[in-house]
């Protein structure tokens, strides 16, 4: 099964150190490819494929239209289609470059084998409000995580990729007010539009900053477990490199800290600096100095006073 499986990620040249660590976490018999989106990449490695080299007419348009994070998101189904056609693999899995496999990939492949598309929800349990954000934060950013998905090479999935490519060609911006959050919000439609989709609620899959409040990690001597029930299979460290007091506390209490430290040690072997990568939370809640925050509040106060100064014609009923 494994030889028929291909795992890929998409990033920029600057983010390649992440992919080295990801590659090291994978069993050597699984094919691993990297798509890069830079306009003029200067790397030569047979496992790295440049977006420029895909034989597709839309590529130039994508490169003109999008910023780096949108381009990475938009190019995923284009790379996916290319890899399926080129390698004829039976199973194709996308993971973010910041993913690290702690457990056995074969467990995921067994699940994919029984379905056509496998997704993971970003959170599994209702919680009200947590350090990462509240429940409504997930409503306009997407129910399913774009950092992991797996598909089998089937006729139905050629429709899925064609559909996703069509949407991401011009609607992969980060504009949550307009219903767009890169490639992620579009996944909301996948279990509705496509057949044989499985939403995996195993808490050991896709542990990430946004779901740490519902997951406690433990090392029981031989293996890591989540919530003392599920085996830890993989983590996405995408948003875990924050220097924020409350988030650090969350990271500490969830038990994931030793894994982050171990990951950073591995990363240091390939780079002296952690490469910059898009963080949804930082984009939605940019870190702002206190004076700026106060000034914004004051200005909004003045605007509201002018809008609602009590001089009116009549009161409607």
């Amino acid at each position: 099964m494994a030889s028929q499986t291909l795992i890929f990620t998409v990033c920029t040249v600057a983010q390649l150190p992440f992919t080295k660590v990801l590659g090291e976490s994978l069993p050597s018999h699984i094919s691993f490819k990297i798509g890069i989106v830079d306009a003029n990449p200067t790397v030569s490695d047979s496992n790295i494929i440049s977006l420029n080299d895909l034989p597709l007419s839309e590529i130039q348009l994508l490169q003109q239209r999008y910023d780096e994070a949108s381009l990475i998101a938009a190019s995923k189904p284009f790379f996916a289609e290319y890899f399926l056609q080129k390698t004829q693999c039976q199973t194709l899995m996308y993971v973010d470059p910041t993913v690290f496999f702690v457990g056995d990939v074969a467990e995921i492949l067994e699940v994919v084998e029984q379905h056509e598309i496998v997704l993971t929800p970003r959170i599994i349990h209702k919680f009200g409000k947590a350090t990462y954000g509240d429940e409504k934060l997930f409503l306009n950013t997407g129910m399913y995580d774009n950092g992991f998905w797996a598909i089998r090479n089937t006729h139905n999935n050629s429709h899925f990729l064609k559909w996703w490519k069509g949407r991401l060609t011009d609607r992969a911006h980060f504009e949550v007010c307009q219903g767009m959050n890169h490639d992620q919000l579009w996944l909301n439609y996948v279990p509705i539009f496509f057949k044989n989709v499985f939403v995996c609620k195993n808490t050991g899959w896709n542990v990430a900053l946004h779901n740490l409040h519902e997951r406690t990690l433990n090392f029981g001597g031989a293996e890591w477990t989540v919530n003392q029930t599920d085996k830890l299979i993989f983590i996405n460290f995408r948003e875990c490199f924050v220097k924020n007091k409350t988030l650090s506390k969350l990271i500490h209490t969830s038990g994931v800290e030793p894994l982050i430290q171990a990951y950073l040690l591995k990363l240091q072997q390939h780079t002296s600096q952690i490469p910059v990568i898009f963080s949804l939370r930082s984009a939605l809640f940019p870190v702002m100095p206190a004076w700026k925050h106060l000034l914004k509040k004051q200005l909004q106060g003045i605007i509201d006073t002018i809008s609602y100064f009590p001089l009116y014609h009549k009161i409607t009923k």
């Binding site: 200005l299 002018i306 001089l311 009116y312 009161i315 409607t316």
Partner: peptide
């Protein structure tokens, strides 16, 4: 259950007065 709502006067003047503050806010 519809709440009574005031119909405000001087909407154009209000827009004019708000403009510089809105510009400033957008820049922050």
């Amino acid at each position: 259950y519809i709440k009574p709502e005031p119909l405000y006067k001087y909407l154009r003047v209000r827009e004019f007065l708000k403009k510089p503050f809105e510009k400033w806010l957008a820049k922050l």
